[in-house]
Design a protein around this nucleic acid. Structure first.
Lengths: 147, 147
DNA sequence: ATTTGTGCAAATCGTTTGCATCTGA
DNA sequence: TCAGATGCAAACGATTTGCACAAAT
């Protein structure tokens, strides 16, 4: 009996990612697949260019720093990731691209997702003349209780 | 009749600023007074280190770039200014230190204050275990209607 | 006189870019 | 083949820092 490639989870996952990248208009190159494998597995996570580069190295792969940045930007432009503005230190990318908000703990530089329906904006001001509201970001800063 | 220094507006303003800085625990040096004169006049404005440096030069004064940064940070630590996180390009400082939110127009990199009472957060999630909500920032991105 | 701040330049940090080389279609 | 990617290093822009000098108390 021959082995069907489709039955090998890793290969199946790979094929899925190839399609996902193609659908996003991105050529499925080795390094894009590597990053997609780490980030686009359905889990919701937050990464920085730096933390991702570390993760890639820890996985035994190697990639130029610039490529990590470029790939994150391409994924973001393609809508596969969302850039979250938290502070000015470094960019944070969110694998959860749906509408939601965040808790931010400055002590640990950690972000926690808040489903959009848990934050009810009862009253919003009108956008200034000639402008529309494009998006609303709510960032809730938290600190440990005996802070 | 002798001239009373207190009657000269500029001098009176200067005296007020000297006290303001002292109260904040900052020595009233020439350059801190210069920046305080520009920023702490009661008007609500948003400046970046760069725009402030330009403003200082345009006023005929001169100041080392590092001093502008250091002073903005000192003022912020002292509570005279508030740092607003809008994006990762550069820091924005707000002379309005009271609780409020912002519109942000990426096209012009302009911030507009929204009084706190115009944004009603009807429902907020509880902070994660062991944590308290420190502050809530609402940033509303706007774009021109014929975007 | 002492402490604190400033000026300036160099250093740092995150990120982007240019260009020769390589790779996927 | 050939457009499009990668690797690397240099370039960059914002911000911080180290140290000799100057000003505030």
């Amino acid at each position: 009996m021959s082995v069907n490639v489709e039955n090998i989870p890793a290969a199946a996952e790979d094929a899925r990612l190839v399609q996902r990248l193609r659908a996003a208009g991105l050529r499925p190159t080795k390094q894009r697949l590597a990053i997609a494998g780490l980030l686009l597995d359905g889990r919701h996570r937050h990464v920085s260019a730096d933390s991702l580069a570390r993760e890639i190295r820890d996985a035994g792969m190697q990639m130029a720093g610039g490529t990590v940045y470029n790939t994150l930007n391409q994924f973001t432009d393609a809508g596969l990731l969302r850039r979250v503005t938290v502070h000015n230190e470094h960019s944070v990318f969110d694998t959860n691209t749906s509408h939601h908000h965040h808790f931010y703990d400055a002590e640990t530089d950690r972000l926690i997702d808040i489903p959009a329906d848990q934050v009810l904006l009862a009253d919003l001001p009108n956008a200034p003349k000639g402008h529309d509201i494009a998006s609303v970001d709510v960032l809730i800063h938290i600190s440990s209780k005996n802070g």
